[in-house]
Each structure stands twice: as C-alpha cells, then as structure tokens.
Design a protein around this nucleic acid. Structure first.
Lengths: 210, 210
DNA sequence: CGCCAATTCACATCTTTGTGTGATATTAAG
DNA sequence: CTTAATATCACACAAAGATGTGAATTGGCG
C-alpha cells in the first residue's frame, strides 16, 4: 500500500501532538508537517521536500480560519485532500468548507481510529460527511422538484442509458427491445429537445434541463 | 418520541417482508404500506388514511425504476423522506436519486439496525451518504479549484470542444488544425483516461474527474 | 368508436466516431 | 545529445450514430 503523507494544521498543541504521534505510528502513514496556523504552514511549505497527500485542518485557528485558508492551500498543493477538524459541529462552517474545496469533515470527538479511516477513505477518492451536512447538500441539489419531464417514461429510460455511457445496442438489450426501436426513441427525443447529437443530450441531462 | 410511519417499495418479497416485520417490531415505528412497485404504491395510495413519513425505496424495480418514481412520489407526498435501497452500489444511480429528491442511500447489505438508524437520522433531518457519492457531490461544489489536469493544454482544448457538443470537424476548424489531428488527440485522451467514447468523456468532465 | 400519444420494429443511407499504423517537427528535460 | 512529451497530419477500416420513410400495436380519452 502507498504511504499516505499527512499534514496537520491545528492550534491546540495537545491535539496536534496526539495526532502526529498517532499517525506516525501507523505503518503506512507519516506526518510530514504539523503547524499551528495556515500562515505558518504556507511559510514553511517551501522547505518541505515531500508534499502531503492529505491535510487535517482545523477551522478555528488564530489568524486566518481554516476555511479562508483552503483556497490558498489548494493553490499551493492542487492535489491535496483536505479533511476539516472542528470542535463544534457548526454545520454552516462545514458547508462552506466543503464548498471551498475540502472533501470531508470530522468532529474532534472522533476517535483516532475513525480519523485514520477517514484519511484512507479520502485518499481512496471518497469522502466522509456528517448526516446533517449531507442533508443540507442534498437539499441544495433537489429544491426544484417542479420540473416535469417532457419526455415519455420510455424515452427517459433511453436517455438514462445514453447518459450512463451505453451504446444503443446495450440500451436495446437492457430494455429488451430492438436496436431500431432505440433509434426511433432517440429520434423523437432529439426532435423534442431540438438537438441532434448525444453530446448535447448528455449536457442537457447534467444541466438538469430535462 | 413521535411514531415514525414507514412505507416500503421493494420487489423482492423476502426483503420486503423482513423489513416490514422488523420495523413493526420497533416500538416507535410502524410500516403503513409495503408495495412491490412504484405503480402499485401510487395506485393504493388514496386508500391510505395515514401517509408515511419515510419511504424505503428500491432502485431496481419492475416497471418504473425507483429513481423515476421519486418525482411522482414526492408530488403525492411532498414531505416524504426517501431512503434508497440498492443491491449494487451504483454511484451514478445513487447520485441521480439524491438529485431527484431522495435524501439518503443504503445498501441492502446494511443491517436492519443500521437501516433503523438511517430512518431515525433522516426523520431527524439528516442524511446518510456513502463516501464515494459524497465525494462526487463535493466535487460538484468545488470543481474548478481542485482540478488537476493529466491532459495537455491542446488535449484540454479538444475536450472542451467535445463537452461543448461540437463535432470533431467543428473542433478542428476552431483550433485551425486538421480533422485527423483532432482524432489523434482524442485517441491520446481516451488512452490516458481509459475510456473509449465521447459519452464517457463528457461524463468525466461533468463529474470533475479531469 | 375514432383519435392520439406512446411504443414497437424495419430498411436505407449518410455522417460521425473509434481504432490501428504510421510519420514529421518542436520543445523541454535529463 | 538523446529522450520523452507535445503537437501536427495522413490513410484505411470498422463501429456507432443520425436521418428519413413507413408501419403495426396498444391504451386512454372524448
């Protein structure tokens, strides 16, 4: 397994030290940097020969807040996965943090073992999210439930296949109809939507214009 | 504690029954309806004197899929909290479901106790979300800042053209190169990204995986 | 009942894309 | 200077998609 390189920005020294000691004890993890503020971290960054993969970032810091620091940090280390650490479960802050480019949130009450899991999940391309913040985000995505599809149910099936990256033949097989039928649906869909190629269809789908 | 009223739409009778029996045995929960399809559920809905608060909804159903049913279900019961149940962890489906108005996702492999927890979390205004889908959503919020391109500048130009819905010929004209050159770039891009069609490329682009 | 929308299928034709195998020139890096 | 990455172009064949025309079936609605 690849060694995961961690950095920590945390102004409570006790917590910072605990984290550092713990992660250095994990076989495939190493803490390459621990700072007490975003400013300090950025200043000392050029001296680092090894950039971190994952950053544990406190929100309530002296000077710049963790959230304010996110864009600056990502600017320096574009591939950095940022996990927010907060003492208080301030959902609005967490929400802002995730929007700013953090990819996960953890309470400081979380056990070290769980934090380790979170690091691994994040490094694996996933994200931890608390129920309350998850709900806030979901609500952001599905507020306008009034958009009624101009397409028929079957046409919608076909569109879903297209958007999923399937070929017409695959879609035909999935829907238990012939290739020609799928083609006919496509023709109707294109006429209805005023487009004439797959790309535009996928675009509309992703833009929620169906 | 308020009694939570559940409904279940699940075509595998065994699972449906198990869920119903379990939740009826939970003191503060009751299953007011269990159907095998969205169509059935909607048909029998007028006969219900008590509307459910939370719905456990399978994605792979006969007839209408769970995802297709979400808008219809929410139209009938606007305050309904929908928890998706899926056999396979198909992130794209989950994402669509959440965007359509579902507020949580669970694998069918999840223990009954965990499902109960999810119901409570959801009823409490929260949401469960898998790490991978959470990451996709986060990426939607902060796409520009975290994007590291493995593609060359010219390849990026071509991708932009594709995503914009242009044909290879149009892209060639726009970039003042030949059609064959555009094709060569496409070949390199596909190889690099491990895909082999436009749809997948557009998909990756919209999912912030470039 | 007749109308209409939705769904199904066929055939033909043309365009667009995907893939393989080359080639040449420039530039940045080692 | 050699090498790798980038960018450019050509040719050919196969696969997929777009378009047009036509038609049978079904179920709901007035």
């Amino acid at each position: 397994m690849k060694i995961i390189r961690l950095a920590i920005i945390e102004d409570e020294v006790l917590i910072q030290e605990s984290l550092k000691i713990f992660f250095d004890s994990v076989p495939h993890m190493v803490c390459v940097k621990a700072s007490i503020s975003v400013e300090d971290f950025l200043n000392e960054l050029p001296a680092l020969e090894i950039l971190p993969d994952v950053l544990l970032l406190d929100i309530n810091l002296v000077g710049m807040t963790g959230i304010e620091g996110i864009p600056l940090l990502l600017n320096e280390i574009p591939d950095l996965d940022i996990i927010m650490l907060t003492t208080f479960e301030d959902n609005d802050s967490i929400f802002k943090a995730l929007c700013a480019g953090a990819c996960s949130y953890l309470s400081k009450k979380t056990s070290l073992k769980k934090i380790q899991e979170a690091v691994e999940v994040v490094q694996d391309g996933g994200s931890y999210m608390s129920p309350s913040i998850a709900r806030k985000i979901v609500n952001h995505y599905a507020p306008k439930a009034t958009k009624k599809s101009t397409l028929s149910p079957r046409e919608t099936d076909v569109v879903n296949g297209i958007v999923a990256g399937k070929s017409y033949q695959q879609i035909a097989d999935d829907l238990f109809v012939s290739l020609n039928t799928v083609r006919t649906h496509i023709k109707h869909i294109y006429k209805e939507l005023g487009i004439n190629n797959k790309a535009a269809l996928i675009k509309k789908s992703y833009d929620g214009e169906l």
